[in-house]
């Protein structure tokens, strides 16, 4: 195993909550996500079909929690969490897992906050890699936590 790339600066970043991001769940966003996946259930596309099944509106497909509000000039760097240098150039998504507590529907506005939970290092077929684990909490306007995401990013 090569020398660790995890610095003290990185260790202090564990558990530090990012600035909140706003995500809008729109009819257009739900339909586009459902279409990209290939969903066939009309609750992801059609207001009447969704209401008939007891939902408040067009349903966000599994794993869709809205579209981040875009600002020209990029996001507030604070929203990305703490910044530190990693000596790897390439990046891959290592895995994603969702917990859904309540249905999310078009019209919902969600606030997400995330923090790093852990760093791990591994020697893989692609060489040395750094794995960063992150937890994101999604809260609706009325304060209800509707979902959580656990993700890991691989730098190598």
């Amino acid at each position: 195993m090569a020398e660790s790339v995890i610095t003290d600066e990185m260790r202090t970043a564990i558990g530090v909550e990012s600035a909140p991001s706003t995500l809008e769940v729109t009819t257009v966003g739900c339909r586009l996500f459902a279409r990209a996946v290939g969903h066939t259930d009309l609750i992801f596309y059609d207001e009447a079909a969704a209401r008939e099944r007891g939902y408040r509106g067009i349903v966000a497909p599994p794993g869709f929690l809205g579209t981040p509000v875009y600002q020209p000039g990029g996001r507030d760097p604070e929203a990305m969490g703490p910044r530190y240098k990693i000596p790897y150039k390439r990046i891959l998504n290592g895995g994603t897992s969702y917990q859904h507590f309540e249905p999310v529907v078009a019209g919902d506005v969600i606030t997400s906050r995330s923090h790093i939970t852990e760093f791990r290092e591994r020697e893989g077929t692609m060489g040395a890699m750094l794995i960063t684990y992150r937890e994101t909490v999604y809260t609706r306007e009325d304060g209800a936590v509707v979902a959580k995401m656990y993700g890991n990013i691989i730098n190598y």
């Binding site: 996946v37 066939t40 259930d41 099944r53 599994p62 794993g63 897992s97």
Partner: peptide, 28 residues
């Protein structure tokens, strides 16, 4: 990768719908 995860979301949704619900799903 996230698209494949979303495919798993569809796999599960199509199995449990209309009255069931997915509470957790994910993959590496």
């Amino acid at each position: 990768g996230a698209l494949k995860n979303a495919f798993l979301g569809q796999l599960l949704h199509d199995w449990v719908a209309p009255a069931g619900a997915i509470t957790e799903f994910g993959c590496q």
